[in-house]
Design a protein around this nucleic acid. Structure first.
Lengths: 108, 108
DNA sequence: ACAGTCAGTAAGCAAAGACTTACCGTAAGT
DNA sequence: ACTTACGGTAAGTCTTTGCTTACTGACTGT
């Protein structure tokens, strides 16, 4: 059920920015905060949420604390999504074969 | 940028329940609401959010309105996730080669 | 036309949550 | 030891949001 925490964590734009920042390179809390329009404690709280979701891990490096991505949470999210992917595709194809009044926004 | 809306949509437990319900079989608003502990208008609002996120489509079927999954939003989410997957794996492997003080919660 | 069903919208409320500032540990340097 | 840098936590505020109960509109059948 950790995918729930991962989804909640990645739903917030700022937290997503933190996550994407760490995807480029591991960084400390201060380094991450320096590139964002929010305070350092805010980033610290976001990192705590990301860590509980299994999306990042941290290691102590002297007085600093370096964060980087953790494949665990990401992998669980991927598996959860894939669970619906095939069903969605097949159901959608089946829909196209019987063209009733489609109301969804189609991309093209 | 639709993955943002998809993440926001799937972050809510109730909305996720609606989504998972539709993944089993297309259903009307009332049918979905019948299986959930919330009111029908609540489900209607959730479906609106899911639709805007490109996660579901709906078709009019008489007075009813049948919803089903839309591969679009799901696919975009998958692509967004995969963007980080390889980086996370490689960074993590690199971490294991230099075993400093790992502080993340490991699964085993 | 009228009654019944289905579903989207409006308004309002209460809970969640994303920020801030202030404070308190901890580690390294002089 | 003192100072400085770094980072997590507490407390408080303000916005967001998920829910409810109305209400309104649309379609179907008698």
């Amino acid at each position: 059920m950790a995918y729930a925490a991962a989804l909640r964590a990645l739903a917030d734009p700022t937290r997503r920015a933190v996550f994407e920042r760490l995807s480029r390179a591991p960084a400390s809390v201060g380094e991450v905060a320096a590139g964002l329009p929010v305070s350092r404690p805010a980033v610290s709280q976001h990192l705590k949420a990301l860590k509980r979701a299994g999306l990042v891990i941290d290691r102590s490096e002297g007085a600093r604390r370096v964060y980087q991505l953790d494949p665990d949470g990401l992998g669980e999210l991927r598996r959860w999504l894939d669970q619906f992917w095939d069903q969605a595709l097949e159901a959608f194809k089946h829909e196209l074969e019987q063209p009733k009044t489609l109301r969804g926004r189609r991309k093209s």
